[in-house]
Design a protein around this nucleic acid. Structure first.
Lengths: 314, 314
DNA sequence: CTGAAAGCGCTTACAG
DNA sequence: CTGAAAGCGCTTACAG
């Protein structure tokens, strides 16, 4: 080792990869995408993109895709994953209990894992790759705040798609509220929370539309997830102007309304980049034996119709 | 070739790199950074960062750094570059005439080159990597527009640092003006252009300060480059409130005023990423023999004090 | 011009 | 346990 240091010897990774020709198996446990327009297609394509860089190094990646709404499906795919015996795992731990169970087993097998999109604190994960949800809500509040009247009402809409909503939706709302507590201590702006079902609840939407039409004081709406296009559709249909709308993610349905001017801001969490970084991080650890960052926060992008066309596509 | 196709043969780049061990020389012609806080340190660090990925492939990178204000220096470094005989070049073509001259010689030698930061149209460059300046100005106007009164005055400040200012400063102003032409046809917002010298022109700054203090109608200032901190310093010193300020680039001096709330928005052009992508693109072309994109527009990031801490650092 | 041999810097099975 | 040999998939100098 003394000589290694004296000569500043650095092993040639290329020669090493060529000689060893071992294949490293990496498993990915994320939600299945229902359509081309689904959110989860983006992390997946980011992972595939990173894979191109490593394919020559004998990396084998296998996707275990579960049903976003079904914890049993998460469990089943987790079982399959364990049977495959990978050397490293990327997990979107959307179901708390089932995730804890799975990573317990991974720990026993000394298989490293990292979290993407959603974090669970202190689980000995190799890394977390995703956005700071609280801060993204805080930023959303600021953006809304600068373009609404100094006294008015603001709706916070939660599309609760299932009982144990991923934690980060609450954190986004918390961040949003915290901004107004700090910057509007006199509560000139009234925050009105609203929980909607994810299914096509026409009746509720109709009620909401009546509410919006009647209440002239509502000048801003914050939707805590990517379902913001549903509210946009309503605003457009009822021709409701003067209401600023902000939500998450560059789904085609959302960007369409952004370009039309119905949605004012979208918060992007760079899902492709999350996928890309997740695979790169796992590779660096498992194959490159490098130390990796324990937390890898994705930038919080502000997207308007003026810069949407310049976002990186993968 | 028929058999190649039948077997879907893909050459093993790793084995190829190991066997050939040829070193590829890539030259970089960009401005020298005066301090750790200079803008041009960022593309440089992005280039070095990308280099880490390729160092095993026998890439040798040499920087030819010229004086930002001095076209002779650009010429001299260009000469040295040609003597070194690289296989590929990255150029920031800040001086038009001198750039045209240099790339003429590169063409004769069949050495591929790509432009970073500033583009010159139709010069057979391999690629351009940088921001759409017009659009970034357009976006800046939109951001200012949503948070200033519906009738007021807006200053457009150009720090002209030399006679032949890089073209993109004009394009930024053009984009800015175009937004207001399209969205304020009645000219309720008055745009006032102002050219300042780059040197510490205390007298002019003093005049500007008087102007701002007297004119109560000025509610927005757009600075077309990274010198926005100089205006911020003035606003802070004179305790001038109610003026929204927007400019370019995440220099330490700028982010400081952003966090204090004196600057409202900064436009980021991801300089590190530009450097990173430039080297990657050049490598892909020269070593990987891949086809590369002719235009690689960097995203136009909107930075506020709420998301500044989540920007990627290289 | 063609084709076989040596070698790039490692890993790993194997002989001693 | 130690150390030399073979081989990973290419490139390139060289013999024919």
């Amino acid at each position: 080792m003394k000589i290694v240091e004296e000569l500043d010897y650095k092993p040639n990774l290329i020669a090493s990869a060529l000689a060893s020709r071992k294949t490293t198996k990496l498993a990915i446990l994320i939600p299945r995408s229902i359509s081309e327009e689904s959110y989860w297609i983006k992390p997946l394509s980011g992972i595939n993109n990173a894979l191109q860089n490593y394919i020559q190094y004998g990396i084998e990646v296998k996707f275990f895709l579960f049903d976003f709404f079904n914890n049993k499906s998460f469990e089943e795919e987790g079982e399959k994953l364990l049977e495959w015996v990978p050397q490293g795992v990327i997990i979107a731990p959307l179901f708390y209990k089932e995730s804890i169970n799975l990573i317990g087993q991974l720990k026993n097998l000394s298989i490293p894992y990292l979290f993407i999109d959603t974090n669970i604190q202190d689980q000995e994960q190799l890394s977390f790759i995703g956005q700071d949800s609280f801060q993204s809500g805080y930023l959303s509040a600021k953006l809304l705040d600068i373009c609404i009247p100094s006294s008015c009402s603001v709706l916070i809409i939660n599309f609760s798609h299932r009982i144990d909503n991923p934690n980060h939706l609450h954190q986004r709302e918390e961040g949003f509220r915290t901004y107004f507590e700090q910057n509007d201590p006199e509560h000139k702006k009234k925050l009105i929370p609203l929980a909607l079902e994810d299914k096509e609840d026409e009746e509720f939407i109709e009620n909401l539309s009546t509410l919006l039409a009647e209440s002239k004081t509502i000048h801003g709406i914050f939707v805590t997830n990517s379902k913001v296009y549903r509210i946009a559709r309503l605003l457009e249909k009822k021709d409701l102007r003067g209401i600023r709308l902000i939500g998450y993610d560059l789904l085609p349905k959302n960007t369409e309304f952004l370009k039309k001017g119905v949605i004012d801001f979208l918060i992007n969490q760079r899902p492709e980049e999350q996928g890309y970084n997740a695979l790169t991080t796992l590779f660096d650890h498992v194959v490159g034996r490098k130390t990796v960052e324990a937390i890898n926060f994705t930038p919080i992008d502000i997207i308007t119709k003026e810069n949407i066309d310049y976002q990186k596509v993968f």
